[in-house]
Nucleic acid binder design. Structure first.
Length: 506
RNA sequence: GGCGGCAUAGCCAAGUGGUAAGGCAGAGGUCUGCAAAACCUCCAUUCCCCAGUUCAAAUCUGGGUGCCGCCUCCA
């Protein structure tokens, strides 16, 4: 199969390094706020990559996704809320997990937190100082960019060219830059005392940055942004992994610097393939916190199901930008119904079972020579997913199969094909669960009121047979109906309710 | 200033040398007490513009126009 490699900027034939185990490291969230649709896209994409390599390609996959819980934005939020960085990170890590669960994103095998790997980072930095790629200035440690001839290889930038931008944007920014030997040198370790803006954190009682620091050979401080990934990759997966990636914004400086650190220490490539996804845009501008044009996953889930959001995202190739509009999401919602209806026939045989299985079957390779999906398997894999995870094409395959299912009159054939559809949709993380009869919570109240209105109309017509039938039915459902002078009132029958519940006290 | 991406029907979006996937919307039909849903059929002679290469270009080359991203926290 082919995967586009950001490092070479071409699609390359992919095989795991050892032939069967794929080591994946995807850059995870910084938990300082709720996640938005852009985050959803990255993790949905990696979820699909991971599922495809495991379920269809049959590789053993080790999937690691970190949590950056040591970061300035967390510290700033903690300061604003008069709490601790740990509390902020923990809270939003939980919120992140909830969102991931809601989107039917499978858990990675490991989710290392930066704060758990400070020791490994310090060792890593010590190695870089020892072999001359890093230098210490007053408790700070910087990576010396000029010491690595291939620096800039990932983003194809020359050091001289970077200085032009650096001159305008970076150098003037702070006194701190005077410490660096080159403007592009980046911090491996930020010393507390040396921190140029540490002063502004005083006056809040205890200095949060001081609390949130670790002892190191260079004094108290905290790690720079990029070192965590290098150290955790090394610790959990080894010196060279198969796939590494994240959002395209991470290419520079984050991944360039990770690559530099790891190359400088190991003299080996950090990752064989670098995979980066495009952004979600709003009105052709990127969706971001700073522009304030983002939609949280939490908010979107109130109106759209996980399947709908996933379909929306997977209908575009992962490297292209997606322009988000409410209409485009609505289009995916409508489209999904076609797939759901196509697999409705699976319920024909067992009418008692109202829902499809939550987990798709693992038997993914059908041997039945049914005409309706003869080429489906091949098309989905070879033409679509094997070509740089072309989920847009894969989704089109699902729709074509759905049409074939609709056309097929014979029930058993329909069901066989529908099973295939469910299984392959599962590779994309789509459940195809039928939610058409899922009603809002307050609908039952409205329905009871409607029944009581019909009942009172029946009573006025002296149609006591109907009115008694309504009351009897409601009673059977645990609703007590009482007629008063002002009209009928109702309540949930407590006795019925309690009989169903487990007693709390004995 | 450096690096990079995109431009395909009303909208979204695949396709990167062989004659335009798929989705939404729209039109017609079947069904139907009414309504809705569903199902079937149709819907780009053409891929931002100009020039070139080729038997053949949306796809390759050169030029132009427009939009966007990274270089600073960002998925």
């Amino acid at each position: 199969m082919l995967i586009y490699n950001s490092l070479t900027r071409t699609k390359e034939e992919f095989k795991p390094n050892d032939g069967k185990t794929v080591k994946i490291y995807a850059c995870g969230p910084t938990p300082y706020d709720y996640s938005h649709l852009g985050h959803a896209r990255v993790y949905i994409i990696w979820d699909v990559i991971q599922r495809y390599l495991r379920l269809i390609k049959g590789y053993d996959v080790i999937y690691v996704r970190n949590i950056t819980d040591v970061e300035d934005k967390i510290i700033n939020r903690a300061k604003a809320e008069h709490t601790t960085p740990e509390m902020v990170a923990r809270r939003f890590t939980y919120e992140f997990w909830r969102d991931m669960e809601s989107l039917n994103i499978e858990r990675p095998h490991s989710e290392p937190r930066a704060s758990e790997y400070i020791g490994e980072m310090i060792e890593f930095i010590k190695g870089l100082i020892a072999n001359g790629h890093a230098y210490v200035v007053d408790g700070d440690v910087y990576f010396q960019v000029a010491s690595l001839p291939q620096y800039g290889q990932l983003t194809k930038q020359k050091l001289e060219d970077m200085m032009v931008g650096a001159r305008e944007q970076v150098v003037a920014q702070s006194e701190l830059e005077k410490r660096k030997k080159h403007p592009a040198d980046f911090a491996l370790w930020k010393g507390y005392e040396a921190s140029a803006d540490s002063g502004k954190y005083q006056g809040f009682g205890e200095d949060i940055r001081w609390q949130y620091g670790w002892e190191s050979p260079w004094g108290r401080g905290r790690p720079g942004w990029h070192i965590e990934c290098s150290a955790m990759v090394k610790s959990l997966l080894g010196e060279t992994i198969d796939l590494h990636g994240g959002g395209e914004d991470l290419l520079f400086p984050h991944h360039e610097n990770e690559l530099a650190q790891s190359t400088a220490l190991h003299n080996k490539p950090l990752a064989r393939f670098w995979v980066h996804n495009g952004f979600i845009q709003v009105n052709s501008e990127k969706m971001s916190k700073s522009l304030g044009n983002f939609n949280t996953i939490r908010a979107l889930l109130e109106q759209y199901s996980a399947d709908e959001i996933r379909l929306f995202i997977l209908q575009t190739h992962y490297r292209n930008p997606i322009d988000f509009t409410p209409e485009s999401l609505q289009a995916s919602k409508t489209a999904l119904q076609r797939l759901v209806r196509a697999v409705e026939c699976l319920r024909y045989k067992n009418p008692d079972k109202k829902d499809l299985p939550a987990q798709p079957s693992q038997e993914l390779i059908p041997q039945t020579p049914l005409a309706c999906y003869n080429n489906f398997h091949n098309e989905f894999r070879r033409a679509a997913m094997d070509d740089d995870f072309n989920t847009a094409k894969a989704v089109a395959c699902l729709f074509k199969l759905a049409d074939k299912i609709m056309e097929t009159p014979e029930i058993e054939e329909k069901q066989k094909a529908a099973k295939v559809l469910v299984d392959y949709a599962g590779v994309l993380g789509l459940t195809l669960a039928d939610e058409r009869q899922k009603v809002p919570a307050d609908t039952s109240k409205k329905l009871i009121d409607l029944l009581l209105q019909l009942r009172s109309e029946a009573k006025e017509k002296k149609d006591y047979k109907t009115s008694d039938m309504i009351r009897a039915a409601l009673t059977q459902y645990g609703i007590s109906v009482m007629d008063t002078k002002e009209g009928s009132i109702w309540e949930v029958d407590l006795a019925t309710d309690q009989s169903a519940a487990t007693p709390v006290k004995k």
